[in-house]
Nucleic acid binder design. Structure first.
Lengths: 338, 338
DNA sequence: TATAGTCTTGTTACCGGTAACGTGATCGGT
DNA sequence: ACCGATCACGTTACCGGTAACAAGACTATA
């Protein structure tokens, strides 16, 4: 049973002043005599006054709410970034409106519309479906926007990109420096920045090393939802190309599946074949054998905080479009690919 | 550059009708002649009208926003539940305001206050710090509330609890049925419902089996933030009580650490010692050896959806306080504890 | 044709705050 | 003692919708 809410008018009456005076006390605006302030404060205390943010939003045309749009919430990668952003925004008295797209472009658009209707002060978009300009138009409607690993038309948002070309070079060079010559790549069947770039980076890195890629024999993609056939797909890659002596996997979950499959097929890790994963370093460390992984240089929470920071900065000073940021990776070598 | 927002008045002028008529068209309320409706619809279309939800909230005293309060977002367990709730609420045109407490009771209280200020229609609280009535009071102020694995005074919220006593019985009985007699338990240093209940369930299950628990020699707790000393703590338990032939771990991450530690100490799994984890079944399956785990009977997304469903139900019919729900577990046997 | 009832639409006030401007009181300086 | 500046606070209008009631147009009925 929610109690009836106390309004500013109630407080004003009780303290014997005008609404505006109360408002000024609350917002520390203008000059107020010490005695009046105290009287208002007392009245607020006594009545248990809590300001109605809805009304404030309407009057000020600022919501102190930020929309965050992610493909999935149950994914630790996104979860950590969201958490970092939420932390930072909380400290600055902003709330977050969280929506997940499930990778569905139509839903993604619907979400952007709803966020507009909610008049959020800005949005942070993570790894959006990369098919185009719908997102760019949506972002252009926002007061401020930060896009992480999402291709948008220049100017509509501050962009944060991970340098996947370099990260993949790191991975490939490490493997080749340790004698691997026949590398395979396993990715997801999704249409995102990271998905494209890592795949592209793989090509480039091989090319740089003077190798030519025979994609059908070296690369496989699997559905994001694992099923009983997941290992079969990986197995097919391994058997159709028995020479493979290293597998680069789009993320740790795939790497784990690869590890299972290799065990099933009696390929010893790392003697017969090396396995290298991406991103989920905490889990990578828990595996047996522990997985060599490419991981962001800074914690994912910090990425979220950075995004939030850039957003608020742009919100504070509308002229300053903050510069785009490139994030780099490091290689954490463990026994799956020494 | 966000374009100037179109208001209902603009549409009304354009269509040559009153604001109320436009409002009625938008909300499908009252009778409107087909021609007028079409005229309004056309005007809305032409002007690109989008209703301002802030104003609507203020007028209707309903926000269509639900607060969700969790200890952590980067945790897959919570992430999946949030995702399920968000999915369900999205389908019913509700947005979620997400906050994480980091396990800090003070912050938890602050969050509840902010959510009140935001006039959310209801809140879902997950695994809140169990120390007491502050949360209960906060929930009592809400129009509707659902508490998951959180102790609150009866009536202030619809409660969802996991039956940890039974789940632990499942675990312990399985281990003993397979000849284990010296069980250990490793938990977290946190003050939550699940933390207490699993520990208590461990005691009870041993007692039921006719064993007496020697807590100092059988139980250990570790900080939630893993560090280099994590394995040391587990190692100390193992060496101080060499008889231990099974470890029950509060979650999969701890189980993984236990697995590492056992390997370091040359205890073979499962011959010398069995390891059993909780909850993160997806990860448990990826481990080597795969971990036996106690897992919820229904997917975690469904738990979130259930919570959201109960919340909306209560919101729709304020008299009906939905009944509390008890969730049960199943045992997924793998090779770490066959 | 008068009358009541139904449809459709307009009017007014209000949700709970804030912006912008107005006003009386106090104050220092000459 | 007069004047402008500053201080402390009040007034009015407005943010963009909706609730509640009023009112005109039209229909059916007697």
């Amino acid at each position: 049973m929610p109690k009836k809410h106390v309004t500013i008018s109630d407080v004003a009456d009780k303290a014997g002043v005008s609404k505006m005076t109360v408002s000024r006390v609350i917002n520390h605006k203008g000059e107020i005599s010490a005695t009046t302030r105290q009287r208002v404060l007392d009245a607020m205390q006594e009545l248990g006054f809590r300001p109605n943010r809805i009304a404030k939003r309407l009057a000020t045309n600022a919501t102190c709410q930020i929309g965050i749009v992610v493909p999935s919430i149950s994914n630790q990668y996104f979860g950590a970034i969201i958490e970092g952003a939420e932390q930072f925004l909380w400290e600055h008295d902003y709330q977050i409106l969280l929506c997940h797209t499930g990778g569905d472009p139509a839903r993604q658009q619907a979400i952007m519309r709803i966020l507009e209707d909610n008049r959020v002060d800005g949005v942070i978009v993570l790894s959006a479906h990369s098919s185009g300009e719908a997102m760019s138009r949506a972002l252009a409607n926002q007061r401020a926007a930060v896009a992480i690993n999402t291709n948008v038309t220049p100017g509509v948002a501050t962009c944060i990109f991970t340098d996947e070309i370099k990260s993949m070079a790191l991975a490939v060079h490490h493997l080749m420096a340790n004698g691997r010559r026949h590398l395979g790549y396993i990715g997801f069947e999704i249409d995102t920045y990271a998905s494209h770039e890592r795949r592209r980076g793989f090509d480039l890195a091989l090319h740089q090393a003077g190798l030519v890629l025979d994609a059908p024999k070296q690369c496989a993609t699997i559905p994001t939802q694992f099923g009983p056939d997941t290992n079969a797909i990986i197995g097919q890659l391994l058997t159709s190309n028995p020479k493979l002596d290293a597998l680069v996997c789009f993320n740790t979950a795939i790497a784990a599946k690869a590890l299972q499959t290799c065990t099933e097929l009696n390929r010893h890790i790392p003697n017969d074949i090396a396995i290298l994963g991406y991103d989920d370093d905490l889990i990578a460390e828990l595996m047996t054998p522990p997985l060599t992984a490419v991981e962001l240089e800074i914690p994912k929470q910090d990425v979220g905080a950075l995004a939030a920071h850039l957003l608020l900065q742009h919100l504070k000073d509308r002229n300053s479009q903050p510069e785009d940021v490139i994030l780099h990776h490091k290689l954490v070598v463990r026994s799956s690919a020494p």
